[in-house]
Amino acid sequence: MKLYFARKFLMLPLVLLGVSILVFLAIRALPGDPARLMAGPEATQEAVDNMRIRLGLDQNLFEQYASFLWAALHGDFGISIQSKLPVTSEIAERFPHTLALALCSYIFATFIGVPAGVIAATNKGRWPDQIVMLIAIAGASMANFWLALMSMNLFSVQLGWLPLLGASNWQSFIMPTFALGLFPTALIARMTRSSMVEVLSQDYVRTARAKGLSNAVVYRKHALRNALIPIVTIIGLNFGSVLGGAVVTETVFNWPGIGRLLVDSVSYRDYPMIQALILLAVVCVVLMNFLADMIIAALNPRIRFD
């Protein structure tokens, strides 16, 4: 199994290389000229051309990619077209904000979603199950920007309980965490429910009950541990969608993370920044899946990946 993880780890640079080529070509295929956008609408053609030279966009694609790759291998992702700051230092400043928000949402989603799913499964078909599933369906289908704007209006503008924008204190985590965490919460609750329902019908659960174990022990020690495997998989696989959700949530809440940075970078065609951000997202998703695999292996020693 060590071999499996080692191999997966060694694949990462190859994945990144492939993604870097794709991203590099894809963002240049976008219509829109960063030199024109930076120089502004009243700039003369000469000014736009000068800007293009300054941004290094006058070179052919191969030259541009080669110099990007060479610099990237040395840890230099270039200078942001928009802010003129080094891409790496800007991301280093903003990534912790996104990470903290994603982590809070994950914790929120797990601590609400798993118990809710267990309650639903152990009360299958009765009212607690119906209420939990109703909320889960609503949560999974609600647009998070709408939810964000509504909660901002209620809790900040009308009631004045929570800060409206930014990441200045712990209270400012509450609304973004909720907005970003609602979808994974709903997903985890539904996954936990169906996984638990399946496990609870297994023979070994009946055996455990026959031994005279209490419901609490059966659920926690015998059922949940086995039911957790698909749940961990879902959590791992959904990290990408949480990052995607962060783009919207951060924009609405003025959260100084990389999601909002990505939106701004796309509208300015800030090529170096977009490239670096997407590569970072890929690394995150790959590492998260990797982590999920390891947790699954730890949860169920029978699972072998090789």
Binding site: M38, A43, E46, N50, M51, R54
Partner: peptide, 8 residues
């Protein structure tokens, strides 16, 4: 050579 955005 500077190519400042507002040079025009």
């Amino acid at each position: 050579g500077r190519g400042l955005a507002a040079a025009g």
